[in-house]
Computed example of a mutant assay.
Amino acid sequence: MKLFARSIATVSAGLVALTFLSACAQSSSSEVDGVVVDAAGSPLSRCAIEVVVVDAPPYPEISQVTGEDGEFSWTLPDGLYDIVAHCGGEPGRERVQVPSESELRITVQQ
């Protein structure tokens, strides 16, 4: 009887894993492009960009840094996110629904 119960538990765990993997494989992702600017509209380089999941699958990458042109690009699973820019002053924050057709513009107060 113990062997039967162990077999059922193993099969159940396998089904749960397959369901999870199937759900992950079916979710799509899209690229989110943006630029971080100051109050005057000038691009800001070397700002930390953080993705905060609002309503989406968990996302493992924590942050990245803007380029010299203030731009960033991130591939995210479809869902709702807050994109936060940290540049030394008050952080800028924009909410985005992925997929998105427009480029984000995050203004940071320095």
Rank of each mutant, 00 (worst) to 15 (best):
E50D: 04
P57Q: 15
C24V: 10
E31H: 12
A40S: 06
V54N: 00
R6F: 15
W74A: 00
C47V: 07
Q110H: 13
V65Q: 14
Y81C: 01
D69R: 03
I106G: 01
D38R: 03
V37D: 02
T10S: 12
Q97A: 15
I83W: 00
C87L: 03
S29V: 03
D69G: 01
E94S: 06
G67I: 10
A5G: 09
Q109W: 01
S100K: 12
S30W: 01
S7T: 09
D33A: 00
E90S: 06
E61V: 13
P77E: 03
F20K: 14
R6W: 15
A39S: 13
W74V: 14
E68S: 08
A23H: 11
V36Q: 00
S7D: 13
F72V: 02
S12Y: 11
S12A: 14
I106K: 03
E31Q: 07
E61F: 10
V11P: 04
E101V: 00
C24T: 01
S73D: 05
R6M: 15
S22W: 08
A25T: 10
A17H: 12
S73H: 08
S73F: 14
V52R: 05
S42N: 12
A40W: 12
V84E: 02
G89M: 04
G79C: 12
V51I: 09
F4K: 08
G92H: 02
A17D: 08
E68A: 14
G70S: 09
S63R: 15
V16Q: 05
E90G: 02
V16S: 04
E31S: 15
L18K: 01
V52P: 00
G89K: 04
D33I: 14
S29F: 14
F4C: 09
A9T: 15
G67M: 02
Q109V: 12
G79S: 02
T10V: 13
V51D: 00
A13H: 11
G70Y: 06
S29H: 08
W74T: 07
V51M: 11
T19V: 15
T19A: 15
S63Y: 12
C47P: 10
I62F: 06
V37W: 11
I49T: 00
Q97D: 14
G88K: 09
S12F: 14
I49K: 06
A85T: 06
D78L: 03
S73Q: 07
T10W: 09
S27Y: 09
A9P: 02
V96T: 13
G92W: 01
V36M: 07
I83S: 06
L15H: 07
S42C: 05
S29L: 13
F72L: 03
E50V: 08
C87A: 01
V65S: 09
G41Q: 13
D33E: 10
Q110G: 14
A40G: 05
F20V: 11
S30P: 09
V108G: 10
